[in-house]
Design a protein around this nucleic acid. Structure first.
Lengths: 125, 125
DNA sequence: TCATATAGGGAGAAATTTATCCCTATTGTT
DNA sequence: AACAATAGGGATAAATTTCTCCCTATATGA
């Protein structure tokens, strides 16, 4: 496992939120768990771009940050279920607001994000 | 300048938001600009942990993403002012909600974040 | 017997982000 | 003359995150 060398800055609320929500897939993981897709295999199907490895790591971090719980069923094949903790549930309005903003401004966001790549392509040609 | 090699995933609103708000200092930069600290030197003083270099880069990205405008005054020494665009202003409620959550849960967040570092220290000792 | 589904870890590479150090330029101040 | 404040870029290093590939293990079904 990678071990951090630098202590994070924890000066304000935004620093703290960053520490637990930074991570390419974390908000989506939380959101899908909230929607009832609790098993790792389900999450993999819902988020096809994440690798199994990274999903595991981010789930473990979310668990360490007390945003989700992990319940292991003693069955074979293995079954694991994640749930939002009460603390994790307090994030639902935030995730909702963020997702909504992204959906509302979808066209514009796609345009400004892809702009850079088109510039790059033009330079390469 | 670093040039990205991999096209980002833009499957849902959350992907799009991530593309423009990912960046260690971006939300804080936007927030302080919103609060009226518009000049780079002011931002540096408000966010002492960010380096001048990284501030410049993230400001430029925010500008490319049409969240802020950059106004250059033809004076000496140089003067530059950033402002939120109308588009950027639509983020204010989100930034506000996120910061509030962080402040509300400050104690708990600090505890769960620092927990890992204490574990590491223990292992090293 | 062999493939599949389940859950997960280790090692190491690759990509990306952030930080550091050193430049340019101008005006005013000590 | 030397130095600070202003804004910003280039090169490069360091830190961090993400990805890829390859392992373990067990029960079920073909």
């Amino acid at each position: 496992m990678y071990e951090r060398k630098i202590l994070p800055h924890l000066n304000c609320g935004l620093d703290l939120v960053g520490e637990v929500l930074y991570g390419k897939w974390k908000i989506r993981i939380l959101w899908f768990i909230h929607e009832g897709h609790k098993r790792p295999s389900e999450l993999l199907r819902k988020i096809p771009d994440v690798s199994r490895r990274v999903l595991n790591i981010q789930l473990k971090e979310l668990e360490e940050h007390e945003l989700v719980t992990r319940k292991i069923y003693a069955v074979m094949p293995p079954k694991v279920e994640y749930d939002l903790t009460e603390f994790g549930k307090t994030l639902i309005p935030i995730m909702h607001t963020i997702g909504l903003w992204g959906d509302e401004h979808q066209e514009r966001l796609k345009r400004v994000i892809l702009k850079q790549f088109q510039d790059n392509d033009a330079n390469e040609a």
